[in-house]
């Protein structure tokens, strides 16, 4: 069953969302999401690397010897990560400072190598780009959700704009590391809950 090009793009949003469904790329999802803007920044950086590495990997898929494909993919990914690092340092220094060591660590983000190996090395350039874009958008969406929840609860703000009055006492733990674990744990729980519900409905409709 071949997907349409639109499906190729949108599958990363929900059906195969890298974090929610595939549970990949967790380190940045937790580490940098103390605010919405950091989450989006990380998401965009990862999306750029994902699209570029998918493109190159799918372009060179015919000539890469099978035995050393993984090292070559890693070199390709690391190259784009370093480009992102340098561009960010020059043009978005505040974001660069906020993301810290998690920028170079995009290299070992399992989503990127995962998509290179599982998708781009087997599909056409066009499809690989769409796949990378879709996965990147899905990743960014989850990061934005986690970032917003943590910023609203932990700091009482969204994008630096205060939401509650001065009497609001922020739930500090939410922007500290434990809060990240709670938010993602509960989010994954909600995803699983909705899956289970849908399955149940399907079963019931078969029975009736």
């Amino acid at each position: 069953m071949k997907r349409s090009l639109v499906q190729e793009f949108t599958k990363g949003f929900i059906d195969e969302n890298p974090i929610a469904r595939l549970v990949l790329g967790l380190c940045p999802a937790l580490a940098v999401t103390t605010s919405l803007i950091n989450g989006i920044g990380m998401g965009i950086a990862a999306t750029f690397v994902l699209v570029c590495s998918n493109t190159i990997v799918s372009m060179i898929k015919g000539v890469v010897p099978k035995k050393i494909r993984i090292p070559i993919f890693i070199v390709v990914i690391a190259t784009f990560v370093t480009i992102v690092e340098m561009v960010m340092a020059g043009f978005a220094p505040v974001l660069y400072k906020a993301l810290g060591i998690y920028v170079p660590l995009i290299v070992v983000n399992c989503i990127i190598l995962g998509r290179a190996e599982a998708f781009a090395s087997k599909n056409s350039v066009g499809r690989s780009i769409l796949d990378g874009l879709g996965m990147g958008v899905g990743f960014t969406m989850i990061l934005a959700v986690i970032g917003s929840i943590r910023e609203i609860l932990g700091d009482g703000k969204i994008l630096g704009f205060p939401l509650f009055g001065p009497d609001f006492e922020p739930v500090l733990i939410m922007i500290l590391p434990p809060g990240a674990f709670f938010v993602i744990g509960i989010l994954l729980g909600i995803f699983k809950w909705s899956d289970l519900r849908q399955e149940k409905k399907k079963l019931q409709s078969i029975v009736h």
Partner: peptide, 10 residues
Amino acid sequence: SLKGVPIAFI
């Protein structure tokens, strides 16, 4: 719905 990974995170 919390079994497995979600509860591990919590």
